[in-house]
């Protein structure tokens, strides 16, 4: 049995030891917000938080996450109240097809925590820090605008 804490809820799962965190979330817990793009840690669509840090869930084995707090896009909003980044993504149209969106938002949410609030965060720095999250639709300028909106 693998014990996972996801979005504050505890789960006991009977998992093949080869199961990645991403597959555990998607196939075993029905949390399909995190997406399987490349399955190689190259696109960022599977980004979730583990103990508050952004992690590529396709490269993490589920069994190794026991005792840690996993958060997915489904756990980001407070009930019906969207996280400020989720609102900003809507307002700035920071998405098109939506496939990378959960990863972009989770990555951005962690990014905001990685940088001390007082420190200035330049556009170039946000772009660099977000470059692990690919968006083939090319919503990058709008994603940057959304992150800016929340940061300031």
């Amino acid at each position: 049995m693998v014990r996972l804490t996801v979005n504050g809820e505890r789960h006991e799962l009977d998992l093949d030891p080869r199961t990645t965190l991403l597959d555990a979330l998607r196939d075993h817990l029905g949390l399909t917000g995190a997406k399987k793009g490349c399955d190689h840690g190259q696109c960022g669509a599977c980004t979730v938080h583990v103990d508050g840090r952004r992690v590529l869930s396709c490269l993490a084995l589920a069994v190794a996450q026991q005792g840690r707090e996993v958060m997915t896009i489904e756990g980001l909003a407070l009930g019906v109240h969207l996280h400020p980044l989720q609102l900003a993504f809507i307002e700035c149209d920071a998405l098109q097809c939506g496939f990378c969106t959960a990863g972009q938002i989770m990555s951005a949410a962690a990014l905001l925590g990685e940088v001390e609030h007082r420190r200035e965060l330049s556009d170039a720095s946000i772009r660099e820090r977000m470059s692990g999250n690919l968006c083939r639709c090319g919503a990058y300028p709008n994603i940057l605008a959304a992150i800016r909106r929340v940061r300031t």
Binding site: A77, L82, D93
Partner: peptide
């Protein structure tokens, strides 16, 4: 206009083919 399907996408609720169980 705000993209009407954006909310389902920023919350991870939009269901794509591989999400179907």
């Amino acid at each position: 206009a705000d993209r009407i399907d954006a909310r389902s996408k920023v919350t991870g609720q939009a269901r794509y083919a591989a999400d179907v169980v």
